[in-house]
C-alpha cells in the first residue's frame, strides 16, 4: 500500500521541515520514501508545500494526483488541495486559520486549532509538529516514537538540540488532540 501526504501552508509555517522529518521517520521505519518540495518563487512569503510518498517496496512517482492525506495549515492550501485528496483519505485542517467546513464528504476530517495549540505548548513555531502529530494519529502512517527520534536526530545534526523538548511536546499535543481513524 502506498501512502502520500501533501503538507501545505504559508512559507514560515514549517511545512518543508515537517515533511523532511516524516520522510526521515518513514525511512527509519524501513519504508521506501520520497520527499518533494515546491521550490518555486511561491516559497518567498507565499504558500509552500511538499509531498511525501511512502511505500513498502519502492516509490514510483514522487508527484501524486490524489494524495491519501492533506495537511492544510491555511485556507489557500485547503482551497488548492481539498479536491485532490483520494476518496477515503484524511484531511488535517488548521481550524485556527480556516473557518470554513470541508466540502468533501468522503474524507476523514481532523480539525486542529494549531495556532491555539501552539500557544499552549509555548511556541508558535512548533505548529508544524502539532500538525504532524495529528496526522500520525489520524493515519497511523508511522509511529509517534520513530517520528520523535527522527526529529531529535535532525535537530541535533542542525545544532538545534535545545528545541527538541519543545517539539516533542508539540508532537504529543497534536497526537493527543486528534482522533484515531483506523
Amino acid at each position: 500500500m502506498e501512502r502520500s501526504v501533501v503538507i501545505a501552508g504559508f512559507g514560515g509555517q514549517g511545512v518543508i521541515l515537517a515533511g523532511k522529518i516524516l520522510a526521515q521517520a518513514a525511512m527509519d521505519s524501513g519504508l521506501a520514501v520520497t520527499w518533494l518540495p515546491s521550490y518555486g518563487p511561491e516559497m518567498r512569503g507565499g504558500t509552500a508545500n511538499c509531498t511525501v510518498v511512502m511505500a513498502q517496496e519502492s516509490v514510483g512517482s514522487p508527484i501524486v494526483d490524489e494524495p491519501t492525506a492533506l495537511i492544510a495549515m491555511n485556507l489557500p492550501s485547503l482551497d488548492k488541495f481539498e479536491r485532490t485528496v483520494a476518496s477515503g483519505g484524511a484531511i488535517i485542517v488548521n481550524s485556527s486559520l480556516i473557518d470554513r467546513d470541508i466540502e468533501r464528504e468522503d474524507l476523514a476530517v481532523t480539525k486542529l486549532p494549531l495556532n491555539d495549540l501552539g500557544a499552549s505548548v509555548g511556541n508558535m513555531r512548533a505548529i508544524n509538529m502539532i500538525a504532524l502529530g495529528g496526522y500520525l494519529k489520524a493515519t497511523g502512517a508511522v509511529t509517534l516514537e520513530v517520528v520523535k527520534d527522527a526529529m531529535a536526530h535532525m535537530l541535533e545534526k542542525g545544532g538545534k538540540s535545545k528545541f527538541i523538548q519543545l517539539n516533542v511536546k508539540a508532537l504529543d499535543a497534536g497526537y493527543n488532540a486528534a482522533q484515531f481513524r483506523p
Binding site: A32, W35, Y39
Partner: peptide, 9 residues
C-alpha cells in the same frame, strides 16, 4: 529540477 530537489534514501 525534480531529481535535483527531491530527497530519497
Amino acid at each position: 529540477g525534480m531529481l535535483g530537489q527531491m530527497m530519497e534514501p
